[in-house]
Simulated scan of single mutants.
Amino acid sequence: MMLTRVVAEGVARGEVTLAFRRWATCRVSAGRTFLSVAGVIVIDAVERIDPATITTEDAHAAGARRVEDVLATLRGTAGDPVFRITLSYGGPDPRHATADDAALTADDVAGIGAALDRLDARSARGPWTRETLRLIEAGPGTRAVDLAASLGVEKDTLKRDIRKLRNLGLTLSLDVGYALSPRGAAWLRAPQEGLPGS
Rank of each mutant, 00 (worst) to 15 (best):
M2V: 14
V6R: 14
R13G: 08
R13Y: 02
V16Q: 02
T25V: 15
V28K: 08
S29L: 07
G31L: 06
G31P: 00
G31I: 00
F34K: 02
S36F: 10
D44H: 03
D50E: 13
T53V: 15
I54Q: 04
E57N: 11
D58A: 07
D58N: 11
A61K: 15
A62Q: 09
A64G: 02
V67T: 11
V70Y: 03
R75V: 15
T77D: 08
T77I: 11
A78H: 11
A78F: 07
A78P: 05
D80M: 00
D80K: 03
V82W: 01
F83D: 03
F83W: 15
R84D: 01
T86D: 02
S88T: 05
Y89F: 13
G91R: 05
P94I: 02
P94G: 03
A103Y: 04
L104M: 01
T105N: 07
A106V: 11
D108A: 01
G111M: 03
A115L: 08
R118Q: 13
L119M: 13
D120Y: 01
A124S: 10
G126P: 04
P127A: 13
W128C: 15
R130T: 15
R130S: 05
T132L: 13
T132A: 13
L135Y: 04
I136E: 00
E137S: 09
E137F: 03
E137P: 00
A138R: 13
A138L: 11
P140E: 05
A144S: 15
L147I: 13
A149S: 12
L151T: 04
L151S: 01
K155T: 14
K155I: 10
K155E: 13
D156P: 06
T157H: 10
R160N: 08
D161M: 14
R163D: 04
R163L: 11
L165G: 03
R166A: 14
N167H: 08
G169W: 01
L170K: 12
T171Q: 01
S173W: 06
L174V: 05
G177E: 07
Y178M: 04
Y178W: 12
A179P: 06
S181V: 01
S181L: 09
P182Q: 07
R183Q: 06
G184F: 01
G184E: 01
R189L: 10
R189T: 00
Q192H: 12
E193M: 08
S198C: 11
S198M: 10
